[in-house]
C-alpha cells in the first residue's frame, strides 16, 4: 500500500492546523490585551506642550507673578483688568526694591517705553518698540505692562497718569494685533510714586528714547515684556 498520500495529508493537516492554532491563540491574546488596555511597561508618559519656563522664573518671581495674575484678572475668573498699586502692595508682600529687582532678568526680553512729562501718549518710537516686543513672544503666555509716573505731582495724579499710560499700551496692542485672547494675556500694573523709583542705570535697557534718558525721564514710562514662566 502506498503510504505517501497519507503521510503528505497528515503533514499538511499538521502544518496548516498547527499554524492556524498558533495564529488563533495569538490573535485572541492580542484581542484580550486590546480590551483590557494593557499598557506596555516601557511606555513613558508624554509631556504636554506648555508655556516656556526661563531660568529667571525663580520661586520668588513666580510668587509675585501668580499673585499679580490672579489679582489682575488674567486667569479669566472675573472681568477685572489691571491692578491698582494697593492690590500689588498687599499681594506681592515684598519690598519695593526687591519688586523692581525681580524684573531685572527681563532686561534683554523687555523694553521701556518713555512718555513726555504729564502725557500718556505713545510716540512713534514707543509704538515701534512695543510692536517689536509684542511680536517677539516666543513661548511666553503673559505680557506685562508696568506703568510708572515720576515723583512730581500728587500721588493721586501720578497714579491716574500711570494708569492711563498702561492703558495706552494696551489700546495700541489691541488696535494693532487684535485678538480675543488679549484679556488672558496682558497684565497691567500701574504704579504711582509711592513705589520705588527706577535709577538712571535703567537707561541701559532697551528704551524707546535714548536721547535725554535720565533718572527723571526713565520713571515716566511703561515697562513691557513677555514673561517666560509657567504658572
Amino acid at each position: 500500500m502506498n503510504a505517501a498520500p497519507f503521510v503528505a495529508i497528515g503533514a499538511a493537516v499538521a502544518l496548516l492546523g498547527g499554524s492556524s492554532l498558533v495564529l488563533h491563540s495569538q490573535a485572541r491574546a492580542a484581542a484580550k490585551r486590546l480590551v483590557l488596555g494593557v499598557v506596555q511597561p516601557d511606555a513613558a508618559p508624554v509631556a504636554v506642550a506648555n508655556d516656556a519656563e526661563a531660568p529667571y522664573c525663580t520661586p520668588e518671581f513666580k510668587n509675585v507673578l501668580a499673585r499679580v495674575i490672579n489679582a489682575c484678572g488674567l486667569t479669566a475668573q472675573d472681568n477685572r483688568r489691571g491692578c491698582q498699586p494697593a492690590d500689588v502692595k498687599s499681594l506681592a508682600q515684598i519690598s519695593d526694591a526687591d519688586f523692581n529687582a525681580l524684573f531685572t532678568p527681563l532686561k534683554d526680553r523687555g523694553a521701556v517705553l518713555m512718555f513726555d512729562d504729564a502725557s500718556e501718549k505713545l510716540d512713534d518710537a514707543g509704538k515701534k518698540v512695543l510692536d517689536d516686543r509684542w511680536q517677539d513672544r516666543k513661548g511666553a503666555r503673559y505680557f506685562f505692562v508696568v506703568a510708572r509716573a515720576s515723583k512730581t505731582g500728587t500721588p493721586e495724579y501720578n497714579e491716574q497718569l500711570s494708569h492711563k499710560r498702561a492703558n495706552s499700551v494696551l489700546f495700541h496692542v489691541a488696535d494693532t494685533f487684535p485678538s480675543t485672547e488679549l484679556d488672558k494675556q496682558v497684565g497691567l500694573l500701574w504704579l504711582g510714586n509711592q513705589f520705588a523709583q527706577l535709577g538712571a542705570d535703567y537707561c541701559q535697557w532697551n528704551v524707546s528714547r535714548t536721547k535725554g534718558c535720565n533718572a527723571e525721564a526713565i520713571n515716566r514710562s511703561a515697562f513691557v515684556s513677555w514673561v517666560d514662566c509657567q504658572l
Binding site: 502506498n2 505517501a4 498520500p5 503521510v7 503528505a8 503533514a11 499538511a12 499554524s19 495564529l23
Partner: peptide, 25 residues
C-alpha cells in the same frame, strides 16, 4: 504573510509526498 503560511504549508506537504512516494507518485 498569512497567504504565504498556507501556501508554504501546502508546498511542504507536497514536497514530502514526492519524497516519500518517489516513483510511485
Amino acid at each position: 504573510s498569512l497567504f504565504a503560511v498556507g501556501a508554504f504549508a501546502f508546498l511542504a506537504a507536497f514536497a514530502l509526498y514526492l519524497l516519500v512516494a518517489r516513483e510511485r507518485a
